[in-house]
């Protein structure tokens, strides 16, 4: 007998038998088909403007920095300004996300742009978020050629562009949007919820930024 049958057999025996219990099966299928939402904190349930304000406040609380710009065309300038303000080389790594690729990068003449996944030598990477969560100041990113996951973790500085329209109140709203995009029960290879820059408290419980992931997380909020 293989491990699978042994383990499932033990679980069923402990639960008191009943594998063919149609009612149990119906109950779990119903739950998987229509996930109950549970308790949604009031905190994020706000109108558009207040929700974006909360997102900014929560992101700053976890040591991210936030820059608001009016339109996508302002993003290259905001990126260049960030790099200058941190004394970083004028170079970024981006994926193939059309919302990023088509921006007027040439307006920033000195800026070097590398495409594709990060090789670990990038000082700064730029990603486009799938969305954001106001309740906790969290960014939501999906893997793929558009925004390779390595850009979220290897560069020292991670710059994330997010459309103000995609700032949700709570995680559940983002999950509903994901289902609409990828199909029910389907997921991208990696879904990252990112709340502030990397940190560790492992030495004497003193919280320090920049453990293994980016030392700094900069959000560019477009519109709104």
């Amino acid at each position: 007998m293989n491990g699978r049958e042994v383990i499932l057999g033990k679980v069923r025996k402990s639960l008191g038998g009943g594998h063919n219990d149609a009612a149990r099966l119906a109950a779990i299928e119903a739950r998987l088909a229509r996930p109950p939402k549970g308790v949604i904190p009031e905190r994020g349930q706000l109108d558009d403007k207040a929700r974006r304000r909360l997102f900014i406040a929560m992101a700053e609380k976890v040591s991210a920095s936030v820059k608001q710009v009016k339109s996508y065309d302002d993003v290259p300038k905001a990126v260049a300004e960030y790099l200058r303000s941190r004394n970083l080389p004028a170079a970024i790594r981006i994926g193939n996300d059309r919302r990023l690729v088509k921006l007027p990068w040439t307006s920033q003449r000195a800026l070097e742009i590398k495409h594709g996944p990060s090789d670990g030598d990038d000082e700064a990477g730029v990603s486009h978020a799938f969305g954001a969560i106001a309740e906790s100041g969290t960014l939501v990113l999906t893997s793929g050629g558009d925004n390779p996951t390595t850009i979220n973790f290897l560069p020292e500085h991670h710059i994330v562009v997010v459309d103000a329209k995609d700032v949700a109140g709570d995680m559940e709203s983002v999950l509903s949007r994901l289902r609409r995009k990828y199909g029910k029960g389907e997921m991208p290879r990696t879904l990252n919820f990112i709340t502030g820059p990397s940190r560790s408290g492992d030495i004497e419980q003193k919280l320090l930024l920049g453990a293994h992931g980016p030392r700094a997380l900069h959000v560019i909020l477009v519109g709104g």
């Binding site: 906790s136 879904l191 990252n192 919820f193």
Partner: peptide
């Protein structure tokens, strides 16, 4: 923390 820094869903 309200959320840990990285919550990662892998499929």
């Amino acid at each position: 923390q309200d959320m840990s820094v990285y919550t990662t869903v892998s499929t």
